[in-house]
Write a protein that binds this DNA or RNA. Structure first.
Length: 210
DNA sequence: TCCACGATCGGCT
DNA sequence: GCCGATCGTGGAG
């Protein structure tokens, strides 16, 4: 389990956003380990009115302007956190939002961190990569950006962390054929809705809107 | 200072 | 499908 090198991140943001699909994100917590497979991303570029970096560098978004390969976590809606992978070279201000992951390891720990989300309407919904049915409870664990951040314990405390280190890192995943990648407009934004900068694995239960 | 709003989620109708 | 929660951020005055 080697962290992806810096050179993975310091490329075109749209390239990184697509190539992040299928990669594993690993969080080391003492002896425990949380691992998720990335299944949905969104790119935020410079000169992009929907990007936090659009109006320049501030204390909040400063990590976005670091060299590619660091983490940018922000607080939103008064109660949620969302985590991004910073891309491109220093001073550019581009990043990729991780919108959903498939839980791989440390699932009980993720459940603890997520708490118990109320009612589960159905017991089964969709199939995982190996074709087995996925319980709704498992799907609801990490099928959104704030859910992923909560499950992995990512808050502003982790914003700015270097992803080529050992605490939080990304590592090579299974190959994703191009035909499996879906593209759409980004979710939950009010400007630049025409940009097709959301990428996801088709027919994956942890991707909410296909 | 003040204030409108947000890269969301979960519960309710 | 809709709505409220909840507060930091940053733009405006």
């Amino acid at each position: 389990m080697n962290p992806l090198p810096r050179s993975f991140y310091t490329r075109r943001t749209l390239t990184v956003a697509k190539e992040l699909l299928g990669k594993y994100i690993v969080r080391t917590l003492g002896r425990k380990r949380l691992i998720g497979r990335i299944v949905e991303t969104e790119a935020y570029l410079r000169n992009d009115p929907a990007s936090h970096s659009y109006r320049g560098k501030t204390r909040r978004n400063a990590p976005m302007f670091e060299r590619g390969g660091c983490l940018y976590v922000y607080f939103t809606y008064g109660l949620h956190y969302c985590a991004n992978v910073v891309t491109a070279e220093e001073g550019i201000g581009e990043a990729v939002l991780i919108r959903a992951v498939e839980p791989i390891e440390g699932i009980d720990e993720m459940r603890k961190r997520r708490g118990r989300p109320g009612k589960v309407k159905s017991t089964l919904r969709g199939l995982s990569a190996d074709g087995t049915a996925v319980p709704a409870e498992l799907r609801l664990l990490t099928n959104g950006p704030a859910k992923f951040a909560q499950a992995f314990g990512l808050t502003v405390t982790q914003s700015g962390i270097d992803l080529t280190g050992t605490d939080i890192f990304l590592t090579e995943g299974i190959a994703v054929p191009k035909s499996r990648i879906g593209v759409s407009g980004r979710i939950g934004i009010s400007t630049a809705q025409e940009k097709q900068w959301r990428f996801f694995l088709r027919e994956n239960p942890w991707v909410s809107k296909t």
